[in-house]
Write a protein that binds this DNA or RNA. Structure first.
Length: 496
RNA sequence: GAGCCGUUAGCUCAAUCGGUAGAGCAACUGACUCUUAAUCAGUAGGUUGCAGGUUCGAUUCCUGCACGGCUCACCA
C-alpha cells in the first residue's frame, strides 16, 4: 500500500508529482534581499503601528524549521545563515490555489518568500507573506525539533544535521571561524606574512610523530604528509621572510583521543630578531585578546571549572615545576639514576630512552602537566628533548624554550630557534642514536634543511599553537571532535 | 592496542523477573485565521546494530563481530 511505505518514498512521490505538474522543485533564480538578522535590525525596535506604515517588502529565503497550521492560515519558522524568523501565511491574502500549494510543504524544505513585517500579539516580528516559492524539496525528515540530534556518532558522521538541529554546534564552529579570523588579523597587523608550505614532505620533520605515507607515481617516490611545517617555514626565514605565519593542517599517524585527531590545525609563526621571551608576550596578547573579545572578561568557564587569563600568566622553569608542582625529590635534578628510580616508581615505561633530560620530561608529563590548570608558561626545557631549540647561554644543557599549558594540556610550544648549523647536525645525530634501530635515520637527517641553515638563519624565535585545543578551551568543548567539522571515524559498515 | 559502557520507529526515549516491543515529535487523514514544543480526533510506521548459542519462549542471559563513547596506552 502506497501510503504505508517509508518517509523517504513518500517525499520522492511528492517530488515526482511536482515535476509532473511542471513545477521545478529545485529552482535557482530566487533573489534574496535580506537575511533574517537584517530584518530584525531594521524592524525589531519598531512598534506594530510603525510597521503598519512600513513600505518596504522583504525577500527572504531559508529552510522551514516549523509549521503551525490553522487550516486557513499558518505560521512557519524559517532559518537562514544568520538566524531564524517567523512568517505568516493566510489564505485570504495568498488566494485559494497558492495557499493549497503551501500545504504541500514539509519541514526541511527551502522556501523563498516576499512580504512585509508586522508584530504578532506576543510581539514577535513576523513576515506577512504576499508571495512564496518552493526552492528545494527535502526528501529526508529532519531530527526532532525539541531534543535536536543527540546521538554523538550521527552528529559527527552527518555534521550537517548537527548544524541544522543544534544551535550550540553552530555557535562553536562560528566561534572557531572567528578565532582563526582574529589570528590572521593579529599577525597581519604586526607585519607578518601568511605563507603556505608543502604538505607532501620527502622527509617528515619538525616533530617526531609517525607520519602518513603516500607515493608519487610520476616521480616514483615515497612522500609523507607533513607532521609539522617547521623546517619549511625556517627555510623561508633563511630566504629573508623575517616575519611569517602559517595556519596549517598537519597529520600524525597516532592514536585518536579527545585531544588528538589524525589531522589537526596548528598555527606556526616566526619572527626574526626576537627571542622566546617576546613569543611568550605575543602569545599572552593574542590569547587574551581572543578571550576578551569572546567573553568580555578574563575569567572563563571550562568543563565546570574557571580558567583565569588575567595577565601576566604564571611562568615557571621546567626543573622548578618538577619540585614545586610535581612535588618530586630535588635529587632527581642532580642524579640521573635517581630520576630513573622515581620514574620507575611511578610505573613509567621509559622506552623512549633514558637520557636524563628525557626521563625528566617523562616525569613532567606525568606529575606536572595535568596540574597546570591555569595558563602557565613552563620554560628552560632540557636540551635533550628540544632538538630544534637554541641552547641557553648560561646552561647549554637547557634551551630557550617554553610551553604553554591551559586546563592541563599543552597549547603552545615556542623557542628561540637553533641557528648554528653544526650544532643542529649534532642534535639530529643525537636523535638518531637515541632512537636506535627503531627509526629510519634517513628520515631524521634532513640534509636539505641543514644546507639551508648553513647559509645563515637570522636570530629568530618561533612558535606553534594548537588551534583545535585552543578553540576547545574557548568554546568549553570537552572533545577535539567537537571543534573539527568532520573528525576521522571508521567508515560505517554498509548493511548490504 | 587494553578495560568499561552503549547501539530499540526518521529523531528523542520507554519496555518490571526472560513472556506478543510502547510513547512524544516527525509523517499520513480530518477540524481549526495570532501560533510559537500550537491544539483536538484518527491512521500508519520495528529483521530491537550483525551472526551464533542457551531456552517452550530472548530487546532482556551467553559468545563472537561491527560501529561509537569514556578511560588508559601511544603522541620527544
Amino acid at each position: 500500500m502506497d501510503e504505508m511505505s517509508d518517509l523517504f518514498e513518500q517525499r520522492v512521490r511528492k517530488l515526482q508529482l511536482l515535476k509532473k505538474e511542471g513545477i521545478n522543485p529545485f529552482p535557482n533564480d530566487f533573489k534574496v534581499s535580506h537575511t533574517s538578522k537584517e530584518v530584525f535590525e531594521r524592524c525589531g525596535s519598531l512598534s506594530n503601528e510603525e510597521l503598519q506604515t512600513f513600505e518596504e517588502s522583504f525577500s527572504l529565503a531559508g529552510r522551514i524549521m516549523a509549521i503551525r497550521d490553522f487550516g486557513k492560515a499558518a505560521f512557519i519558522h524559517i532559518k537562514d545563515r544568520e538566524g531564524k524568523i517567523q512568517a505568516y501565511l493566510q489564505k485570504n491574502i495568498l488566494g485559494e490555489e497558492s495557499f493549497r500549494f503551501f500545504k504541500r510543504f514539509d519541514i526541511g524544505d527551502y522556501i523563498g518568500l516576499e512580504g512585509r513585517p508586522f508584530k504578532t500579539r506576543t510581539g514577535e516580528l513576523t513576515i506577512q507573506v504576499d508571495r512564496f516559492r518552493l526552492l528545494v524539496k527535502s526528501l529526508r525528515p529532519l531530527p526532532e525539533k525539541w531534543h535536536g540530534l543527540t546521538d554523538i556518532e550521527t552528529r559527527y558522521r552527518q555534521r550537517y544535521l548537527d548544524l541544522i538541529a543544534n544551535p550550540r554546534t553552530k555557535e562553536v564552529f562560528l566561534r572557531r571561524i572567528q578565532i582563526i579570523q582574529r589570528i590572521r588579523e593579529f599577525f597581519t597587523a604586526r607585519g607578518f606574512y601568511e605563507v603556505e608550505t608543502p604538505m607532501l614532505h620527502p622527509i617528515p620533520g619538525g616533530a617526531t610523530a609517525k607520519p602518513f605515507k603516500t607515493y608519487h607515481n610520476a616521480l616514483e617516490m615515497d612522500l609523507y604528509l607533513r607532521i609539522a611545517p617547521e623546517l619549511y617555514l625556517k627555510r623561508l626565514v633563511i630566504g629573508g621572510l623575517e616575519r611569517i605565519f602559517e595556519i596549517n593542517r598537519s597529520f600524525r599517524n597516532e592514536g585518536i583521543s579527545t585531544l588528538h585527531n589524525p589531522e589537526f590545525t596548528m598555527l606556526e609563526f616566526y619572527q626574526s630578531y626576537a627571542t622566546y621571551l617576546e613569543m611568550m608576550e605575543m602569545t599572552e596578547d593574542l590569547i587574551c585578546s581572543l578571550v576578551k573579545e569572546i567573553y568580555g572578561q578574563f575569567s572563563i568557564p571550562y568543563q565546570g571549572r574557571e580558567i583565569d587569563f588575567t595577565p601576566p600568566w604564571k611562568r615557571i622553569r621546567f626543573e622548578e615545576s618538577l619540585l614545586e608542582i610535581g612535588g618530586l625529590d630535588p635529587a632527581i635534578l642532580r642524579e640521573p639514576s635517581k630520576a630513573v628510580e622515581v620514574a620507575r616508581g611511578l610505573n613509567l615505561e621509559l622506552k623512549k630512552g633514558t637520557s636524563h633530560g628525557r626521563v625528566l620530561a617523562d616525569l613532567f608529563k606525568e606529575v606536572v602537566e595535568p596540574r597546570l590548570d591555569q595558563p602557565t608558561f613552563v620554560t628552560h626545557y632540557p636540551t635533550a628533548v628540544s632538538p630544534l631549540s637554541r641552547r641557553n647561554e648560561e646552561n647549554p644543557e637547557l634551551v630557550d624554550r617554553f610551553e604553554l599549558f591551559i586546563a592541563g594540556r599543552e597549547i603552545a610550544n615556542g623557542f628561540s630557534e637553533l641557528n648554528d648549523p653544526l650544532d643542529q647536525r649534532e642534535r639530529f645525530l643525537q636523535q638518531i642514536s637515541e632512537r636506535g634501530e627503531e627509526a629510519d635515520a634517513s628520515l631524521l637527517m634532513d640534509e636539505d634543511f641543514l644546507l639551508a641553515l648553513e647559509f645563515g638563519m637570522p636570530p629568530t624565535a618561533g612558535e606553534g599553537i594548537g588551534i583545535d585545543r585552543l578553540v576547545m578551551i574557548l568554546t568549553d568543548s570537552p572533545s577535539i571532535r567537537d571543534v573539527i567539522f568532520f573528525p576521522l571515524l571508521r567508515p560505517e559498515r554498509s548493511a548490504t
